[in-house]
Design a protein around this nucleic acid. Structure first.
Length: 400
RNA sequence: GAGGAUGUAGCUCAGUUGGCAGAGCGAGGGAUUGUGGAUCCCUAUGUCGCGGGUUCGACCCCCGUCAUCCUCCCCA
């Protein structure tokens, strides 16, 4: 019979990888705690329409990367491709914005995009992120970026922060027009850019092809077109970043793939790969039927972070090794040590002491507590250091 | 959706112009029934990704398919 295998792009995570995963999420969770965020736990399935209306109908995420299906009553549903849409839906649906002056929420969980799997990119992947709703102050942008910056420090990942402002409905149209008319007169763009030129002109500026980069060197940049409000917002953010020594690179070509962004956008990039990205979305909540509410958030790709993360070293493992007659005593020892918070394994496999020590070694023991008939008689335990081979007799397990 | 590479033991990989399937690591056992990591000895690894075709004969050649990895599009 054919063995059942996991679905393409849906990976199992175990051992070291699982530890890394948890190290990353715990790091963010700790930061969310001290920045006073609250967790929101949301469904993985939503009406497809939610993503059409938030992420944007013309984006690739919606057009070709969503897991869409009909349920038994013919509702068109989708596995969530990102987290913000669900948060906003929930906040509106539950009237959360009326319950507090502002909201700071974080989430964590699987997201789904139907793409070709490759390094740091799976069909089921995981994001951890947050949303600040109801604050328009650029200091809130700063706080969110600062939190991310701290996270990378704690994860020991050397990273580049890039920022930009992509304006708002007041100023973006005139920029878009300027850019489009500039691009119309450019010849020799790559095949992809030929399409982007109409579909999503801002993306042309982001192209990796050298000739495209050259051809768009003189292209107008958003920063020159920002309205006063957007411009001031951007300046203030930079002032905060400078004041608190957060290094960043201004990238006037930084655009984001989702439709809902306004003003501040930012990415944390490592070796050309975006590990974390976010931005402001001051109109999304209103456009989804909620009250007009400014907001900013980010999402980090956990699998991508794992590519550059070392799991933290483990706490010592104590093993209890016994002779068949003293098995009960061994279990008692384990119970006692665990009561004291130690990580303990009883070596239940292996027929003799030699074997059991070998097994203790293989599972990575730091110590072995040896308890046999002789020790039992004398009322002692042997504590063996598995690295130095040193062993000593102890009377009380509390001394360990 | 497009391009490229690769699928042989648990892992890393050899393999023959087409003629019985190999190594290392790991695993299990062992003169040592109370002391592990090194060494030594023994043992088992398997539908050669799957399906078809060519052939007396296919792991090898051909077609298809699935999967993995990488790149692009796109994105965290």
């Amino acid at each position: 019979m054919e063995n059942i295998k996991a679905i393409r792009g849906f990976d199992d995570v175990f051992f070291e990888e699982a530890k890394k995963f948890r190290f990353i999420t715990n790091t963010f969770r700790e930061l969310f705690r001290i920045y006073n965020f609250e967790e929101i736990i949301l469904p993985i399935v939503e009406y497809k329409e939610l993503f059409d209306r938030s992420v944007g109908e013309i984006t690739d995420i919606v057009q070709k990367e969503m897991f869409v299906f009909e349920d038994k009553s013919k509702r068109v549903l989708a596995l969530r491709p990102e987290g913000t849409a669900g948060v906003v839906r929930s906040v509106i649906e539950n009237g959360l914005l009326y319950k507090k002056p502002f909201l700071k929420l974080f989430y964590e969980g699987p997201m789904f995009r139907y793409e070709r799997p490759q390094s740091g990119r799976k069909r089921q992947f995981h994001q951890i992120g947050c949303e600040v709703l109801g604050l328009e102050d650029p200091a809130s942008d700063f706080e969110v970026i600062k939190l991310c910056f701290e996270a990378f420090k704690m994860l020991n990942i050397d990273i580049t922060l890039e920022i930009n402002s992509i304006g708002c409905p007041v100023c973006r149209p005139s920029y878009r027009e300027a850019l489009t008319s500039y691009l119309t007169n450019v010849e020799g763009l790559c095949k992809d850019c030929e399409e982007r030129r109409f579909k999503n002109p801002l993306r042309v500026l982001d192209c990796k092809v050298e000739t495209c980069k050259d051809l768009t060197k003189e292209a107008p940049v958003m920063l020159d077109y920002l309205c006063e409000d957007c411009s001031n917002h951007y300046k203030s953010l930079k002032t905060y970043l400078d004041t608190f020594n957060i290094p960043y690179k201004e990238n006037p070509r930084l655009v984001r793939g989702l439709d809902y962004y306004t003003k501040t956008v930012f990415e944390f990039i490592k070796d050309g790969l975006t590990l974390l990205a976010g931005g402001r979305y001051d109109n999304l909540i209103e456009s989804l039927g909620g009250p007009k509410t400014p907001a900013i958030g980010f999402a980090a790709g956990i699998e991508r972070l794992m590519l550059f993360t070392e799991a933290k070293s483990e706490e010592p493992l104590y093993t209890v090794v016994y002779i068949e007659d003293t098995k009960l005593e061994a279990i008692k020892v384990a119970n006692e040590l665990r009561k004291n918070g130690k990580r303990v394994e009883i070596i239940l496999k292996g027929s003799n002491l030699k074997k059991k020590l070998e097994i203790a070694d293989k599972i990575g023991a730091s110590f072995a507590i040896i308890i046999g008939p002789d020790e039992l008689k004398k009322g002692i335990y042997i504590l063996k250091n598995m690295f130095t081979k040193e062993q000593k007799e102890i009377k009380n397990l509390g001394d360990i």
